[in-house]
């Protein structure tokens, strides 16, 4: 029986399905959440994801207005890596309608840690600073009803790229975050075309990139999530220098992850992680030895 591959695409969604007699694999992309960055493209082991400009998709129904991505149906093997690496949670992978990321189960890929913790004890009733500050509207602060005077802060972590705005804005020091990706970003303003603000428009976090008083693009590094959407939007090669250094993730030992990390950061940074892993391993084994020798004594 021919394997049925179903592709549905419009401006707000891209759905790829592999329908077989006994199983159905679905990979869906929410284009409203997709910022047109290159995390999934770099992480995909099969090079199945490509960047698309709105002009490439002019013939589909209500085409998207900004840069986004598409998945090549002949290359995708539904491993789920894209859906894990997307810090905005734009991809969703499911098998028989149940969300399922095969590579996580087998520890072939780490879980990317969205670390946003709120010490709700510090929150006074009535404060909604974080809720208002969140650029992606992912925070809901509640205190009414059954909560009986306690404050509850609900954060949609799956879709949170951890820009840290909430942490900085919180007047009570109640929020602790840790960036998912650490890195460096520089704009070489000498290369910027006159009046261009493509990167500013592409950036999903407000005020990371802005036009300064001199009319040039400036960067506020502290809230940058290092997704690379600006770089994809930039019309000039080399005007934006984005370097990722590390990705905050659960420990795994996987060739697929090493290769993804190499593409996401650099060979040097991937090697650094490998080295630290082996140091960790040595440390663990030494510790075990030490304990054993103490016990034997």
């Amino acid at each position: 029986m021919p394997v049925k591959i179903l592709k549905v695409e419009d401006g707000s969604a891209f759905i790829l399905e592999r329908i077989m007699y006994t199983k159905r694999y679905t990979l869906s992309l929410d284009r409203n959440k997709c910022v047109g960055c290159d995390l999934c493209i770099a992480a995909c082991p099969k090079e199945a994801i490509k960047i698309v400009n709105p002009s490439d998709l002019a013939d589909i129904e209500n085409p998207p207005k900004k840069i986004t991505v598409k998945v090549l149906e002949d290359k995708c093997n539904f491993c789920g890596i894209c859906s894990e690496i997307c810090i905005f949670g734009a991809f969703k992978q499911s098998v028989n309608d149940e969300e399922f990321i095969p590579v996580l189960k087998s520890e072939s890929f780490p879980e990317v840690i969205h670390e946003v913790e709120v010490d709700e004890g510090k929150c006074p009733i009535g404060c909604k600073v974080c809720e208002e500050a969140c650029p992606l509207s992912l925070i809901k602060v509640k205190w009414n009803g059954e909560l009986e005077g306690k404050v509850k802060v609900e954060i949609d972590k799956d879709h949170c790229p951890v820009c840290r705005i909430c942490e900085v804005k919180c007047p009570y020091n109640a929020i602790h975050t840790r960036k998912i990706i650490s890195g460096l970003i520089k704009v070489n303003i000498d290369l910027c075309p006159e009046g261009c603000r493509a990167c500013v428009d592409a950036c999903p976090i407000p005020n990371v990139l802005f036009i300064s008083n001199e009319g040039k693009v400036s960067v506020n590094d502290s809230f940058c999530v290092y997704c690379g959407a600006c770089k994809n939007a930039c019309p000039v090669e080399g005007a934006i220098d984005l370097r990722r250094i590390s990705v905050h993730h659960t420990p795994v030992k996987s060739g697929a992850w090493n290769k993804a990390l190499e593409r996401l950061t650099s060979t040097g940074n991937m090697a650094k992680e490998l080295r630290s892993k082996s140091i960790f391993k040595t440390y663990e084994s030494v510790k075990k030895l030490h304990v054993r020798s103490r016990v034997s004594k």
């Binding site: 029986m1 592999r18 077989m20 007699y21 093997n77 095969p102 189960k105 087998s106």
Partner: peptide, 15 residues
């Protein structure tokens, strides 16, 4: 192994 693909032995009914 995390990856599944259509099994042509099963006439692609299974993986």
């Amino acid at each position: 192994c995390p990856i599944e693909f259509p099994n042509d032995w099963d006439m692609n009914l299974g993986v």
